[in-house]
């Protein structure tokens, strides 16, 4: 079971690694940028899957950490600190801190209350972003690409791509090791039956809080990369529909699987990119109404697509049964 997961993951990642050379051969550098964006959201989706798929914590405010990571880079850049060796640690620390604080409070609740309190926290940050007049408020502000002391040049599309790729691989490796550790077993156990885990003497609240913080931190990295990709930071990155989209990526790809969120991010973003074009090609003038098709597709995925895209590659859905 697990071996198949890793196999799918390796093949998938190998395909991602091939994007820049292929784009070079076909002289279509645009695709390097496009897939870099996909991988950034894939990191966010992988991080959400850690708590959502494995931990059963339905966080509806995950975009908040993209915002935190992005603003960390943007604000430092605003003050002339473009050094990535400063920016990334700050982004990571900020996201970790915010996730810890949010987690401390949200994890006291369960079920729908948890969904809504995470949404409320994300909304708070969203409105905070809008009010940061110094940093562009609703208009957002430019962020220049991080500098890594000449080691990597992020203004080069291919180098930027492979940096994102490295982070994605790291996120997958960390997630894989976490869920197969004792820690992961407790988190997964708490999802299945929290009381039982507590009765066995595990302080599940603390374990869940740790998982929640790790997920937020990982997503903060995605945010820092997103600011670099976009060369721009705005509250829009934290809009509640963005949190919804990350959730959709996880479900669409296969919740509770390692590579599922990556497949989901790829699927959803490609669909968003090409659905309008397909519709326009089919019936002229319908392209701008693509959401009328997108909506039912999402519903169909929920109703019929058990296990998501990953299930197409493997017989069973999640590896946690």
């Amino acid at each position: 079971m697990d071996r198949r997961q890793i196999l799918v993951a390796v093949i998938g990642l190998a395909l991602f690694a091939l994007v820049p050379p292929l784009a070079g051969i076909f002289d279509q550098p645009f695709y390097v940028d496009m897939f870099a964006r996909i991988m950034i959201f894939a990191i966010a989706a992988v991080s959400l899957d850690l708590i959502l798929g494995y931990g059963g914590m339905v966080s509806f405010g995950h975009a908040a950490y993209i915002g935190v990571g992005a603003y960390a880079v943007g604000i430092l850049s605003y003050y002339g600190i473009d050094n990535g060796f400063v920016q990334f640690p700050v982004a990571i620390a900020a996201a970790a801190l915010i996730a810890l604080v949010f987690g401390l409070m949200s994890l006291r609740t369960t079920g729908v209350y948890f969904i809504m309190i995470t949404l409320a926290f994300a909304q708070m940050l969203y409105f905070l972003g809008i009010s940061l007049e110094e940093f562009g408020g609703d208009d957002g502000m430019p962020a220049y690409r991080s500098e890594f002391a000449g080691l990597i040049d992020l203004t080069d599309a291919d180098q930027f791509y492979y940096l994102v790729f490295a982070f994605l691989v790291a996120a997958l490796v960390v997630t894989h090791r976490l869920i197969h550790s004792r820690f992961g077993a407790v988190v997964r156990g708490a999802k299945a039956n929290e009381r039982r885990m507590q009765a066995m003497g595990f302080p599940t609240y603390r374990y869940k809080l740790a998982a929640f913080t790790i997920a937020g931190t990982m997503c903060g990295i995605a945010g820092a990369l997103f600011a670099n990709w976009n060369e721009f930071v705005s509250p829009d990155a934290m809009h509640w529909t963005r949190s919804g989209e990350i959730m959709i990526m996880v479900i669409m790809g296969g919740m509770g699987t390692l590579i599922g969120p990556v497949l989901g991010a790829t699927g959803l973003l490609l669909l968003e990119e090409y659905l309008p074009e397909w519709m326009e090609a089919l019936i002229a003038g319908t392209g701008e109404h693509w959401m009328v098709v997108m909506g039912p597709i999402l519903i169909a995925i929920v109703l019929f697509g058990r296990g998501g895209i990953y299930a197409l590659f493997a017989r069973r859905g999640g590896d946690d049964g």
Binding site: P29, F30, Y31
Partner: peptide, 20 residues
């Protein structure tokens, strides 16, 4: 191109227009 009033979508469109 339809930017959906989202900054990153506009960025993506601009990218596509320039590079593709």
């Amino acid at each position: 191109g339809d930017d959906q009033r989202k900054p990153d979508v506009a960025k993506q469109l601009a990218n596509k227009l320039i590079k593709r």
